[in-house]
Amino acid sequence: MWVQAEVFLQTLVSGLLLGGLYALIGIGMTLILGVMKIINLTHGQLMMVAMYLAFWLFTLFGIDPYLSLLIVPPLMFAFGMGIQKFLVNPVLRVESILPHNQVILTVGIGMVLQNLATLFFTSDYRSIPVGYASTVWYLTDLWRDSPVELSFSLPWVVSFMLAVVITLMLWFFLAKTDTGKSIRATAQDRDAAMLMGVHVGWMRVITFGLGSALVAAAGCLFIPIYYLFPALGSQFTLIAFVITILGGLGSTIGAILGGLLLGVFESMTATYVGMGWAPAGRFVVFVAALVFLPGGVASLLKRRKLGK
């Protein structure tokens, strides 16, 4: 009995730790979706680029990936702003038969990034040999009489905590600063925001930068616990997409809950169905969300708030 509970709790813990990082990825995509009304299908590729940056910072200069959190996200912020300003904005102005040609543009950017990465860095799997990679804490170390034994991998816990801190910082920015409020206002009603004196074009650029910086931060947090290869981008674009659908398009809290949910679900699938089945579990969640909860987690929250 205790053994089963132990397995379950351990799975839950791993799922939540993974989910925290997923949430960070999902928030970036959902922010861009909210303001631009487009799905950024190069989101995972941006994370891949960020991970290579962190990888080379470590390999060439010995900068710890957690320390590169101070370097890589700002660089990717600028990179994201550039994508919006020089690639997406010109496409926005084109009248075309395809209503969402910006989305197709993001797919193209993703392909270019992935192939450039393959060209320069080969498709080898890489990882960073950080000293603390296999450090583990045990619950019994902290609580001697605990009836169950759980293990916590140090880099997973640190990455999760940092993801929480970054999410809180983002929340503060969006809730308390004028720029943050302007971003939310642009997402809710573009014309009304313009009447309030919001420079909507600039908000788009900032938002794309912010979304890129967030996923870049997630990349820095992933690299001590994950391996890196160019095609990892498309895998994470899909994950971000599933989280965004699961959370309810454009909702930040939805993306957080969606990320946690997906993390737990994948972890459960891996434990109880089989290691290789986690991606399958991901798509079960995706289809189930589309069929049974089209508005995502956000629609549940909204229903409660309005008392319906």
Binding site: D178, K181, S182, R184, A185, Q188, D189, D191, A192, A193, L195, M196, G197, V198
Partner: peptide, 18 residues
């Protein structure tokens, strides 16, 4: 055309951005 997902006070803040 209010910002419906913002509070009353935040909507007022939006009126005085500039």
């Amino acid at each position: 055309r209010l910002f419906v997902e913002m509070t009353v006070e935040e909507n007022l803040d939006m009126g005085s951005l500039r």
